[in-house]
Design a protein around this nucleic acid. Sequence first.
RNA 1: GGGCCCCUAGCUCAAUUUGGCAGAGCAACGGACUUUUAAUCCGUGGGUUCUGGGUUCGAGUCCCAGGGGGCUCACCA
Length: 511
Amino acid sequence: MTAAGAASPGEAEPPGPFDPARLNDQEQARLHKLALLRKQGLDPYPARVERTHTIAEARALEPGTDDDAPQIAVAGRIVLLRDLGRMSFAQLDDGTGVIQIMVRRNQVGADWYREVWKACVDLGDFLSVRGSLVLTRTGELTVDAQACTVAGKALKPLPDKWHGLQDPEARYRRRYVDLLANPEVREVFRLRARTVRSIRNFLDDLGYLEVETPVLQPIYGGAAAQPFTTHHNQLHQDLYLRISFELYLKRLIVGGLDRVYEIGRDFRNEGVSFKHNPEFTQLEFYEAWSDYQGIMERLEAMLAKVAVDVCGTTEVAHQGRTVSFAPPFERMTLRDAILEHTGLDIHELAAEADLRDAMRARGMDTGDDPNWGKLVDSLLSRYVEPRVTNPMFLYEYPKAISPFAKGVPGEPRLVERFELFAAGMEVSNAFTEINDPMDQYQRFLGEKFLREHGDDEAHQVDDDFVEALTWGMPPTGGCGVGIDRLTMLLADRPNIREVILFPHLRDADQG
RNA sequence: GGGCCCCUAGCUCAAUUUGGCAGAGCAACGGACUUUUAAUCCGUGGGUUCUGGGUUCGAGUCCCAGGGGGCUCACCA
């Protein structure tokens, strides 16, 4: 860091976070112990300490007695501490596991035991312990300490050792406390990482190329959503944070990269809910010489493999239900699904006024939906989506809400598109991509019309993308998958904030 | 954004129904204990009851306003 005294801190320095007046009794006690360690010439924050084995490695060793016991050094955070006269038991956690240590006065020396161990070491501190790996009388694998070193003093008390940290707000705002106090939370994020790795392996093995496309975009598109806006000062250019990768990935298909995918962050300037965070992680993959049927099979195979890689089975427990990722997934047209759940036939009710009247006649709220497509979308998300448990493909979508999907031959109102639903959520959205530049241009004009008539999620015209298509694009299928939601499913979490390390929250400042 | 619920010690929670000394467990501090397993036992300290107003002799509790969070509806993926 900066040279000491560079800013000439004097007595006028504000007290800061270590002002005893701002600390509770426990924090003051720890601060005092920190000073006590230093007074004894011990560094509470050494750069390195002895460690021969991770705790997981140590647990795999065969313990001994006396002379034949393995001599090891482990290190970790003290998560449990029991004093027992002139000895103590503690448990260390290093992220690979937990192991018990035994600190005996006769072994470590009476002075050290009294002046350091009893006087300065707290629950929550990091510690390095060298000693023999033995079994205690009750058969617990234990490091019988010969020597200990404080490896990182904690100045805050640990949350309740039994209940951990429960308050959701505290858990999200200080995720590090959540992670250190609630080991099962660490597992969620390990599972999330395995999920992403499994997806990468699946696509890589199929010859897909992983790419990265711009997050800052002059024209946003590829989904129906409101963007975050930002500005490039030097270039005097307004920019948007991407709401999807779609239009850039398809430019790569034009360029001859026949199988591409990207895993990254999308940003949508909209409400938050149990399944919505303003920034979220999306997978999009595009495959030339495929179509929405081919993509359906790809996705089915991918999710079945991911479920097995991550959960060891295709039958995944989620919130008291079982979600089966065993292929083939159920397939149903969107029309049939809506018909089944609402009794409304969107093919018959093909005019906005007719559909709106029919919905109102059934007491359904059609409030803010500005057009026919949005009404269909409402029926789907309100009456179909919540009722789907096992993965189900709904296919053949209205052209009116699908500006990038190719039309179904002979069905002027339908496009070759599907969405995958599971556990009451939309998990994926895919279609046969439009490769006819004139068709795409007409779709953009249609979006422009909607935009001018009150649909502020309708697309901007992206002339540059249309031009890309004029250079020729092969028949292509493409797909987007919500990684956070998939993780919710696989990790059996009820809420997207449980699978995002630092979910978005309001400012904590008080007014 | 709407509706409902919540915010009390470092943590987990009581006390709110019916306004009357703000409590327990863990953690901390002092003590006992050399094989514990959420160790046990004895003792001690610890509070801006989210914030600001109001009603009242008296407010954690009732009323108003604000902040944050949760659930839910709307919207989106």
